[in-house]
Simulated assay, not measured.
Amino acid sequence: MEHTHRSGGATAPAPDSVDVVPRRDDGRLVGSDRVLAVLKILARFPDGAGLDELTRAIGSPKPTVHRALSSLCRAGLADRDARGHYLLGDEFLRMAFFHHEARPEHLRVRPVLESLAARFGEAAHYAVLDVAGSGMPGREVVYRAKVEPPRGAVRLTSTVGGRNPAHSTAVGKLLLAYRLDSEDAVRAWVRSAPLEARTARTVTAADELHRELERTRWRGYALDDQENEFGVNCVAVPVHVTSATVPSGAVSVSALAYRTPLSALVDAVDEIRAGLGGLVGLGGGR
Rank of each mutant, 00 (worst) to 15 (best):
L209E: 01
L180H: 11
R187F: 09
E140V: 02
G138C: 10
R211G: 14
V190G: 08
A197F: 01
A123L: 11
R155G: 15
R201W: 08
T157G: 14
E183R: 10
A132L: 09
L175E: 05
A177M: 13
E196N: 10
S182F: 00
H167T: 09
S182D: 08
A145S: 10
Y178L: 08
A177I: 12
V154A: 07
A193F: 04
A145F: 00
A170E: 01
S158H: 06
S192N: 14
A153V: 14
V160C: 03
H125I: 07
R119A: 15
K173T: 07
M136E: 15
R119F: 10
E212Y: 04
R201I: 06
D181F: 00
R187K: 13
L209Y: 02
K173I: 04
L195G: 08
Y143M: 02
V203G: 06
G152W: 00
P149Q: 02
E212M: 07
R201G: 03
E122I: 04
G161L: 01
T202H: 07
T204Q: 06
R201M: 06
R211W: 09
R139M: 06
A145E: 12
A166T: 09
G133D: 08
V147P: 03
E140M: 05
D181Q: 13
N164P: 05
D181G: 11
G152E: 08
G138L: 09
